[in-house]
């Protein structure tokens, strides 16, 4: 039963990872950019929601509504100022520039908000600890269920947006081939800015859930980036629903690892990630001998 409980809690944890990962996955799918500032932006939006909630004395959910347009605008600016220029200068530049941005954001947040760990848990009343009891002493937290519901809704929303709306079609066209998309009258620059804005809205939602379900500080971002990235890779790059599965696998692996040792939570997650990668390489029809350094392949 203990084992079952750990898996169940892992699934709920995985829902949070899907939330934080979907923006990263979305941007990668559209622009082939891995935004290394992704986690830091999530923490930034957590601070934004926290500040709004405390300043106006409002519920974090209401504060999130206020933060959404701000983060969408930030996404637009991010695309126009940094990503667009990075994309033009070759495949490595987005990594370099977004890593620089992450360093700036993390330390700026430290400068503005200090080193203290913060949380939105006190601002959501009962929700942070209330739950339902099931048979065999299993507890299911209301916030955990809410996270799962929001994650599924957000992924469905993104999927619907991509499938049914004109903007979604334009985004898919640009993801496929921006030059050809421009030939048929799509403004790729505009589409990319819209996609980045959408990605940052999902990051705002993820940041709020991060702040509600746990504590965070200005240097929490990189860890969130790593978790998001692991969820994406485990689930299969470029698939939105795969991200949910990947998040769940990661969450379950971490929870099971935490049963082994105190450090096992993180080690379990990283090992799951590496195992999935190893399996991917093994089944991709690649040359196994390269693994043992027997022979290197002429063509990678």
């Amino acid at each position: 039963m203990m084992f079952f409980d750990q898996i169940l809690q892992g699934i709920f944890l995985g829902a949070y990872y899907a939330l934080i990962a979907c923006g990263l996955s979305f941007l990668f799918g559209v622009m082939r950019i891995i935004n290394l500032a992704h986690g830091s932006i999530a923490v930034l939006s957590a601070f934004l929601v926290l500040s709004l909630a405390e300043h106006f004395g409002i519920s974090p959910f209401f504060a999130l509504l206020l933060a959404v347009p701000v983060m969408a605008a930030a996404g637009f600016v991010l695309q126009r100022t940094i990503l667009e220029r990075s994309l033009r200068s070759g495949p490595l530049t987005p990594l370099l520039s977004t890593f620089g941005l992450a360093v700036v954001l993390d330390n700026s947040m430290f400068q503005s908000f200090g080193a203290n760990t913060r949380s939105l848990a006190p601002n959501i009343g009962d929700l942070s600890f209330a739950g339902w009891s099931g048979p065999g002493g299993i507890e299911v937290g209301q916030l955990a269920v809410l996270t799962l519901v929001v994650a599924v809704a957000l992924l469905s929303g993104l999927q619907a947006l991509l499938t049914y709306t004109p903007l979604g079609r334009a985004i898919r066209a640009c993801a496929e081939d921006p030059e050809t998309a421009e030939l048929v009258g799509i403004d790729a620059r505009h589409v990319y800015a819209a996609a980045t804005a959408i990605a940052l809205v999902t990051v705002a939602i993820a940041g709020t859930f991060l702040a509600m379900r746990s504590t965070f500080d200005p240097y929490t971002g990189p860890t969130q980036l790593i978790f998001a990235f692991e969820a994406i890779v485990i689930g299969g790059t470029g698939s939105l629903w795969g991200t949910l599965i990947g998040g769940i696998v990661l969450g379950v692996a971490q929870n099971l690892g935490s049963q082994v040792s105190p450090q096992g939570f993180l080690i379990g997650g990283h090992l799951a990630f590496l195992l999935v990668l190893a399996a991917r390489f093994a089944f991709a029809g690649r040359d196994w001998r390269g693994w043992f350094g027997v022979r290197s392949r002429a063509v990678a």
């Binding site: 940094i82 990075s86 200068s89 530049t93 370099l96 520039s97 890593f99 620089g100 941005l101 992450a102 360093v103 700036v104 330390n107």
Partner: peptide
């Protein structure tokens, strides 16, 4: 960080 960003 800002210098690295600007140079990149």
């Amino acid at each position: 960080g800002a210098t690295a960003l600007i140079f990149s």
